[in-house]
């Protein structure tokens, strides 16, 4: 599981973290991502970095489903603390091969306690 804790463009951690997640998926690992703290801002809609002169990595999250990264756990408390709700986040989906490529949401809202249980189940956790 890749745990994302940083706001999207103030540091390189989200971008270089995404690169690891994609490589991990290419190695046939059971990849999931968690977004906690300011990390939840990584998934917000309408990110525009043109004025910053920094590469906008937000569109890459849309490609995660194609790499079979289909479990994006977003911590509800982190959203609440920042005045965000599910509707403020990008509509990220994946296509389920088992169900005739039905489009399903990748973002799963979880409580802090649920996320704690998920962390407990992981073989390897990387923080970005």
């Amino acid at each position: 599981m890749y745990v994302n804790r940083h706001a999207p463009h103030g540091t390189i951690y989200p971008l270089e973290g995404l690169e690891v997640a994609l490589i991990g998926a290419a190695f046939d690992q059971d990849v999931s991502m968690a977004f906690i703290g300011d990390g939840v801002f990584q998934l917000t809609k309408g990110q525009d970095t043109a004025d910053l002169g920094i590469k906008n990595c937000a569109p890459t999250y849309g490609a995660l489903g194609d790499y079979e990264v289909t479990k994006l756990y977003v911590e509800q408390e982190s959203l609440d603390e920042r005045g965000l709700e599910l509707n403020d986040l990008m509509n990220l989906t994946w296509e389920d091969e088992q169900e005739d490529w039905a489009e399903k949401p990748s973002i799963r809202l979880v409580s802090r306690a649920q996320l704690s249980d998920l962390l407990e189940q992981q073989d390897v956790i990387l923080n970005f």
């Binding site: 951690y13 490589i23 190695f27 690992q29 923080n127």
Partner: peptide
């Protein structure tokens, strides 16, 4: 080398320890 070496390091080792933010 590439990031695949990190993934492999996570798979092959009993423990992967991360240092730094």
């Amino acid at each position: 080398s590439g990031l695949g070496q990190l993934i492999e390091a996570g798979i092959e080792a009993d423990r992967l320890l991360v240092f730094g933010d």
